[in-house]
Design a binder for these strands. Structure first.
Lengths: 102, 102
DNA sequence: CCAGTTAGTTCAATAGTTCCGAACTATGAA
DNA sequence: TTCATAGTTCGGAACTATTGAACTAACTGG
């Protein structure tokens, strides 16, 4: 479970980053992680969707360089790679989060 | 050809807007329209893709409230709905365009 | 007016992606 | 060891995207 792949941010295209953010469930996940880092799956509050779907959403966010996942016992801890993402796409995540519906 | 449908910006979700922007061809189209308004299809420079695909990309951008299309003879004129889009999602388009690869 | 050309849409087929239940893996607790 | 929990993987169903071909409509030259 613990061999997570995290891309270099230089390898992430703008279109790929936007694609990862272009989903209501993933937007919620990112917003939650922006507020309180280091959550596990259940902690993202997106648990109306099935586990397998969530797992896939996490993979999409990882592949877009938005989050980093670590195994912690049988949980998975996730954090936003905010500094790196902001360095790669300045202002983008801020404006996306600011425009998210409350 | 000329019965284009343009949504109210209040009906456009953030996820839908991001989805429309999450494609390299559409990003090019939007960037081109941001630079020189009122282009037709051929003028967007995205002509490596076939006509039917382009036509579809224009529809996606229209449905996301990003562009307005008008028939002009046998051409189609398109402009960014920048003021309206910016009012709906402040700063979003700016940060996307600023992060586009040159 | 007519034939040809050009800009764009629509249709249908195919290719690719996403979703989600079921089965599986791995960790931890009793 | 046995049970429960957290998450992944697999595979099929549902959805989305891409594109050639056929079509529509408007302009152009004779």
């Amino acid at each position: 479970m613990s061999d997570f792949v995290h891309p270099r941010l230089t390898d992430v295209s703008l279109a790929a980053a936007l694609h990862a953010l272009a989903d209501p469930v993933r937007l919620d996940m990112v917003a939650t992680l922006a507020g309180s880092p280091d959550l596990n799956c259940a902690g993202t509050g997106a648990c109306s969707v099935p586990k397998s779907t969530l797992s896939n959403h996490f993979k999409v966010l990882r592949n877009a360089g938005l989050i980093e996942s670590r195994a912690d016992g049988r949980d998975q801890r996730n954090r936003l790679r905010r500094a790196e993402f902001d360095a790669r796409f300045p202002g983008l995540l801020d404006s996306v989060l600011a425009n998210r519906p409350a």
